[in-house]
Write a protein that binds this DNA or RNA. Structure first.
Lengths: 134, 134
DNA sequence: CCGGATCCTGTACGATACTG
DNA sequence: CAGTATCGTACAGGATCCGG
């Protein structure tokens, strides 16, 4: 491996973080841990769903549907199930009639919150920069 | 909750900044600023490209290609151009023969670094959690 | 109220070949 | 060396209807 070190302190800290992990080698797309995280967030609606659940706490299916009117039931169901499968969201079914299903962020899922917030922050800044460039 | 992870001070300050601002009302998918950020990182190869450029600094097209062997030229070109269009990556063409093109992370793009770090960190943890569940 | 089943469409991605 | 051009495929997302 060629060692061509031109380093800002930021890069140094990144390198320390990555030491012995993914950064050193040929990173394949399916090994990349950043992809792990992105993969979970990518669905067109997942960030929105998560933001709502994080802000409002536990919510029923129909509440989410009301707060995100443009989404179809199918999509809402599907994306919630995917988040559930990853352990990010908890699904609680009340065996009643009419049916009642509540969704909430798991403790584990809450660890994603700072990342979502950082992305929100950056995204806002980026959107504004795009405007200024026009 | 346990603080197993020391978040970078940048993220912590972002969290403070975001308090009370981020998650308000009916967020449409095309307004969601988290989507802004994700949209830029989604390409199958973009995180990998960015990690390489962040680690190695300025690199030629062929160097990147060599470090990411599974990617096709077409894809490498395309994703680099998209990153360039967003202002994340700088493209420097040397009008020589044979051609020479160098890519690097812009100062602006470096602001993504803490986010990528956080995602990498979380992704690693998540990947391991999945294993344990099996 | 919640969500599964079906069908349809755009596009991200890839293999391959060609060029200044 | 660093790209375009062309063609082909898989899959995410959406519209709509059905069911417990």
């Amino acid at each position: 491996m060629n060692e061509k070190y031109v380093l800002s302190s930021k890069i140094v800290s990144l390198m320390i973080l990555m030491e012995g992990t993914a950064m050193n080698e040929h990173i394949k797309p399916d090994q990349c841990q950043v992809q792990e995280a992105i993969g979970i967030l990518v669905g067109k609606w997942k960030p929105i769903i998560l933001l709502h659940l994080m802000k409002e706490g536990t919510q029923r299916f129909s509440e989410l549907k009301r707060e995100i009117p443009e989404i179809t039931q199918k999509m809402l169901t599907k994306q919630l199930r995917e988040l559930e499968a990853e352990g990010i969201v908890d699904r609680k079914v009340y065996p009643e009639i009419p049916p009642k299903v509540e969704y909430s962020i798991t403790e584990y899922g809450k660890e994603l919150q700072p990342i979502l917030e950082a992305m929100h922050e950056w995204g806002e800044k980026h959107a504004q920069m795009k405007k200024e460039r026009a």
